[in-house]
Write a protein that binds this DNA or RNA. Structure first.
Length: 451
RNA sequence: GGCGACGUGGCCGAGUGGCUAAGGCAACGGCCUGCAAAGCCGUGAACCCGGGUUCAAUUCCCGGCGUCGCCUCCA
């Protein structure tokens, strides 16, 4: 069974399932106010790999991932560009899912929007106020973190230490708050801002409430796993948890956080490729599978640098896998080698050890190639195992791509010319095919062509 | 100030108290080829520094040095 590092208990422990055979996962999705960046790509890929692996294991996955479609960043951009805020959220969401599609990230089973849950959020905030755990000020409603046991659990810090170390930072809304760490649940609207009615006045929800309401609504209390990027640990996840605790509800049973994307100097964030400022550029300029490959070869909890060298390396590694897929595409069906699959499961079950799993994949490919060279019957089961692994982690290998009839004819003509020792013609055909983007492989059995 | 992560071959990146320290990329050698390319097979090379624990440490502990992250709105 799958074991994952749990941020709350700071140890790798078994992912307990509330219902056998089913897993409920909540993943914090994007605020839609700009193009997705490399960090978004990493988070979605990490959890896509998790999801696919769970599904491959025969577990039914319910994955809810929200779209934050009301937020200060959205309003600010709308004002700056003088356009309706919905215009921004709709377009950005479309771009988001287009990018996810290119990455091969499967759409979550549930995609709730913050604006669809405003009534529920108002109701929840009302409950918190009634319980005496939230209070009203002249600019909004705040949660009182001092009423929450274990506040700071996810960041492994207590309230006093957090405050002491606050550094030089400005504390938002400090004047109105009872405690500097209290956070806003409901923001009263300023003139011209989008707003919804509430008992405290028209306004909009704070960032941290939507995920509580949506996850509990869609997945129910005590759902299995809550995921997101390391940077969401605090304050976002801490504050989600604080609300659920304040309500007296069981929240996520397990917390998973992925590491950052860093640049070549090891610093957080994205502009490391120089020519690639965001995810869209990366997808535009390179094989979209390359990013998944880069991530698979490092552990999800560590930082990963997305550099020219890494991407190039991944592209080359994929070329080898594609060649293997093409070479084995005509092999008879066989049951996957069970020893290899067991090793794969063992790696993945150990906190999603994808580096080990990909090492196994490459190793299996090499063994299958060697078996093929030796006409050994173990080739087919090994090849089948390699395919299973690739599929389970979402690597789509280009196997037997359809080759148009005229290209097949040209390949045949190339062989005929070679047989007739008419090398000038053979070379001409070869360069013509290569010019059209085909990889031309000349071997004993004649010429084969693939993309 | 508090909490935490990390320093492994040319590059990326796993992992382990002792058994040949994964894998990928690059490099090099071989096979194949009319020549290439692609492909396949193979080879070499690494555990930041100083103490400590131990029969034994790259792995555990302590201390340095270096890098990075979080500590209110960022995946």
């Amino acid at each position: 069974m799958l074991h994952l590092y749990d941020t709350a208990t700071r140890q790798v422990r078994e992912l307990a399932l509330r219902e056998p055979g089913k897993v409920s996962i909540y993943l914090c999705g994007p605020t839609v106010y700009g193009p997705p960046h490399l960090g978004h790509g990493r988070a979605t890929l990490v959890y896509d790999v998790l999801r696919r692996y769970l599904e491959w294991s025969g577990i039914e996955v319910r994955l809810a991932s929200n779209i934050t479609d009301i937020d200060d960043s959205i309003i600010n951009r709308a004002n700056r560009e003088n356009r309706p805020w919905q215009d921004i959220t709709h377009k950005c969401e479309a771009v988001w899912f287009e990018a996810m599609g290119k990455l091969g990230v499967a759409r979550p089973t549930d995609v709730p929007h913050a604006t669809e849950y405003v009534d529920e959020m108002v109701a929840m905030i009302g409950e918190l106020v009634e319980l005496g755990r939230a209070y009203n000020t002249d600019d909004g409603v705040y949660l009182s973190v001092e009423t929450v046991d274990d506040y700071g659990l996810l960041v492994n810090q207590n309230l006093a230490d957090m405050i002491e170390g606050g550094g030089d930072r400005e504390v938002f809304g400090a004047g109105n708050k009872r405690h500097p760490a209290d956070f806003v649940l409901w923001k009263l609207a300023k003139p011209g801002e989008p707003s919804w009615p509430s008992p405290w006045g028209d306004g909009r929800p704070g960032w941290h409430s939507e995920c509580v309401v949506m996850s509990l609504d869609l997945l129910g209390e005590g759902f299995d796993l809550h995921c997101g990027g390391m940077d969401l640990k605090f304050p976002h996840h801490e504050n989600e948890r604080a609300q659920a605790v304040a309500l007296g509800k069981r929240f996520a049973n397990h917390w998973m956080h992925n590491g950052f994307v860093v640049d070549a100097d090891g610093e957080k964030m994205s502009k490391s490729l120089g020519n690639v400022a965001n995810l869209l550029d990366l997808l535009d300029q390179y094989d979209p599978r390359a990013y998944r490959m880069v991530l698979l070869q490092s552990h999800y909890r560590g930082p990963v640098s997305v550099t020219q060298d890494n991407i190039d390396g991944a592209v080359n590694a994929l070329a080898g896998l594609d060649a293997f897929a093409a070479r084995t595409s005509t092999l008879p069906d066989a049951a996957a080698d069970p020893v290899v699959l067991d090793a794969f499961r063992a790696a993945m079950d150990d906190d999603l050890d994808t580096p080990k799993a990909t090492a196994l994949l490459f190793d299996t490919v090499r063994r299958a190639n060697a078996a093929l060279d030796a006409d050994d019957p173990s080739a087919a089961p090994l090849a089948a195992a390699a395919r299973e692994i690739a599929a389970a982690v979402g690597l789509d290998l280009k196997g037997a791509a359809d080759v148009p009839a005229d290209v097949v004819e040209q390949a045949a003509a190339l062989d005929a010319a070679r047989a007739a020792k008419d090398f000038a013609t053979a070379d001409a055909i070869r360069s013509e095919l290569q010019g059209a983007g085909w990889t031309v492989e000349t071997g004993k059995g004649g010429t084969t062509v693939r993309r």
